[in-house]
Amino acid sequence: MIKINFRKITLFLLICIVLIILHYFSWLSPVENRIVSWVSFPVNKVYSKVVSWKREYRDISSTQVSLDDLKNIKKEKNSLIAENAKLESYRFENKKLRKYLNFLEEVEYKYVMAGVISKGYSINSNEEISTILINRGEKQGIRKGLLVVNSEGVVVGKIEETNNLTSKVSLLTHSNCQLAATIQDGQETYGIVEGDLGLTIKMGFIPQDKEINQGDLVVTSGLEENIPRGYVLGEVVLVERSFNQMWQDAIIEPLVDLKNLTLVSVLVP
């Protein structure tokens, strides 16, 4: 005969109900905030350490870079430096011209740095885990919908939910992460970028008359509130076009390794 102690179970359930009520009335907030603030730093350190071990293991086990590859990389780097210098001068000229024409001042964004403390839970079983938790929240001015970039300024995702001291970031490959984007091909091709099954990114609603090529860079279009223009998302790897459809799709590969993030920045207007 299996004996179940109903008194203990009832007491336990009562404690749970009290905790839930205290949480939803925010009476537990001081305790929760205290726990989160104590735990965030060591958790971030351990998480970053494990990610750095993974990177080291991957670097050791990957094939050696050939001399030719190295030369090509150096060449590409030099041309990027030259292009960057040109763009910098255009930016300065743009700013001056705006001032002369009395345009409204562009919104200044500040970068709030945050450490990754863990991976989130997958809401959709059909999807790989493509959310991360960071140790910054509403207290630092972060709110839902803000853009998240890595240390090189490349987009990694958007803020999906926030608590007082932590936030959940939907990475670019998450289906909840949708961004208004444009392709840098001189044709002003606009579309919506959306994560696909936690594995890749798809850009949809691209008009059929636009010519898209492999290798084209995709950047944020600035048409969304609180998301500035010009932040790189990735590059086009495949174009899906069907002549009886109104739109065409592009598969985009992110430029950043989304599985090994340790430090990110949130763009706060």
């Binding site: 336990f12 404690i15 749970c16 905790l19 839930i20 949480h23 939803y24 929760e32 726990i35 989160v36 735990v39 863990s118 989130g120 839970y121 938790l133 999906e160 939910e161 608590n163 932590t166 959940k168």
Partner: peptide, 22 residues
Amino acid sequence: WILGLGFFFDIFYFLPFGYFLL
């Protein structure tokens, strides 16, 4: 242990509070 672990999980993960406890 359920009270302890469930409470910590519920405050860190962005699911409704009580999901992990239950």
